[in-house]
Design a protein around this nucleic acid. Sequence first.
DNA 1: TGATTTATCTTGCAATTGCAACTATATTCT
DNA 2: AGAATATAGTTGCAATTGCAAGATAAATCA
Lengths: 148, 148
Amino acid sequence: MRQEPMSIPEQTRQSRLSSNGWKIQRIAKWLDREMDRRLIDHGITVQQFAVMMTVLETDGLSQTQIGRQFSAPAYTISRAIDHLERAGLLDRRPHPTSRRTHTIHATAAGHKLSPALLAIVQEVNAALVAPLDTAERDRFSALLTKLT
Amino acid sequence: MRQEPMSIPEQTRQSRLSSNGWKIQRIAKWLDREMDRRLIDHGITVQQFAVMMTVLETDGLSQTQIGRQFSAPAYTISRAIDHLERAGLLDRRPHPTSRRTHTIHATAAGHKLSPALLAIVQEVNAALVAPLDTAERDRFSALLTKLT
DNA sequence: TGATTTATCTTGCAATTGCAACTATATTCT
DNA sequence: AGAATATAGTTGCAATTGCAAGATAAATCA
């Protein structure tokens, strides 16, 4: 006697779609899109933005050091810097003591971009927690910290 | 008189790196890696996994309907199904009334994979909230829902 | 009905990504 | 010192992605 294979019960579906992981992925995707939407005017991607912010915040880091800031592989940094260098926003300079290391520095144009980038971060973060009241924001932030 | 361009104050850096957006992105990346790490044994990616789950949960959806489940563009679904079909986990069948629509169905092999996939979801979600106690988990889940 | 618009799905192409291999330099070990 | 290892960064290649355009088919409109 033949029987159709059972499909997953509705309850299971609900529990997956309402899982924390799923929600976080959705929110993260939204964040990415919002960032990209605003960054496109400045000709950079979120990936490149992260590198640029790091360089603006700390001048003269090596590529490896930059990568460690957000655990990105070396080649990601290498290529992001290729872009940002071509865009004239930063440049590679020889390291004072090591000939295989570069130190990375924002150019004048890079520094000029800084306020706009900071504004974007703040705007997107504000939009993210807009549905929450002050107490909820504090709790949310604390909980996220526990997970990191 | 020449002056070095100001770099972004430490406080600003701290506020960016501790922002909710940043933390969420970090967690989302972690989730992705954890899922991928487990799914690789089954030869599918997270993207394909999402499609597969949807098909397992609801048999006979069209590709567009599947895409709406997680607001993925049509071509993503098209290609994910290409893979899953080639892997023998599901198949496209003609729609009963519309000749341009496919209905998507899990194969026997697809159904057989179901428990393993469900286990992965549960495992990763459990690992995600492992640092939180029961009350915190409830609060976290509620807050995430508000943001969605 | 025939023309226009919309819907469903696919695909060509260029850009991006991830892996592994590579170059070059620095460090450690014997 | 010389050999073996480790580190910093780059690159070739294959796979993936995203956009825009295409191919059908269905629905709407005049």
